[in-house]
């Protein structure tokens, strides 16, 4: 295999996109090892991994609008990576909650998963992410054909559930939730707008 400049550029970009989402986790581990997460490191870790799950989900959802707006065709190639990182952070988030906050106490796990609405919607969002992760390979994509796109539209529901999970934890300040909510509204609104324009264009053609 010859390393042409083009291939080299692509390789460097791949590694960049692969390593970048690991930075927050590396920072967190470094702080935790330095015992620098305050009196309640458990809460700090759970909050941190939670917000990064949401951020990576938004990055994943931003691929399509950015690609279309700026004609960044190359971005499409990394959507799967962002999606898998979203799943990865979500799993770490849930494991951190179960380990550091609940200590894997079965009674507490059962109580939280059955009684706490914000825990239930958060868990549901994670469960729905799993089939998307499993079917993210090119082989599965080919095997599922048109059903693949349909299945992966679940991500919109997942985003709404994740947002609800976040909103449900507001104590008094809703600043963060408002900002994230507006970003999500744009990410979803862009798709609705595109679809309406497309169907209107199609109607005009058939007329």
């Amino acid at each position: 295999m010859v390393l042409t400049p083009e291939r080299l550029r692509r390789l460097a970009l791949w590694w960049l996109v692969f390593l970048l989402p690991l930075l927050p986790l590396a920072w967190l581990v470094e702080r935790a090892l330095a015992m620098d997460l305050g009196a309640d490191p458990a809460q700090a870790i759970v909050q941190f991994t939670g917000i990064w799950t949401l951020r990576l989900l938004f990055v994943t959802l931003a691929v399509t609008p950015l690609r279309l707006m700026f004609r960044w065709a190359w971005l499409q190639r990394y959507r799967r990576m962002f999606g898998l990182y979203t799943l990865f952070y979500a799993v770490v988030h849930l494991l951190a909650f179960a380990t550091f906050i609940l200590g894997w106490r079965p009674d507490l796990l059962l109580r939280e998963l059955s009684e706490r609405p914000y825990i239930i919607v958060g868990t549901l969002a994670l469960l729905l992410l799993i089939p998307l992760g499993v079917t993210s390979t090119r082989g599965m994509q080919r095997r599922l054909g048109p059903k693949w796109a349909k299945l992966h539209r679940l991500v919109y529901l997942i985003a709404l559930l994740a947002m609800l999970h976040f909103i449900w934890q507001i104590r008094s300040s809703f600043q963060e939730q408002l900002i994230y909510g507006l970003i999500l509204a744009w990410l979803l609104g862009f798709r609705l707008w595109k679809r309406r324009r497309r169907s209107r264009g199609a109607r005009r053609q058939t007329a």
Binding site: A39, P41, A42, F100, I101, L102, G103, L108
Partner: peptide
């Protein structure tokens, strides 16, 4: 609190 990571002190 303070809790350490692997003994949540519940």
């Amino acid at each position: 609190l303070p809790s350490s990571l692997f003994s949540p002190n519940i």
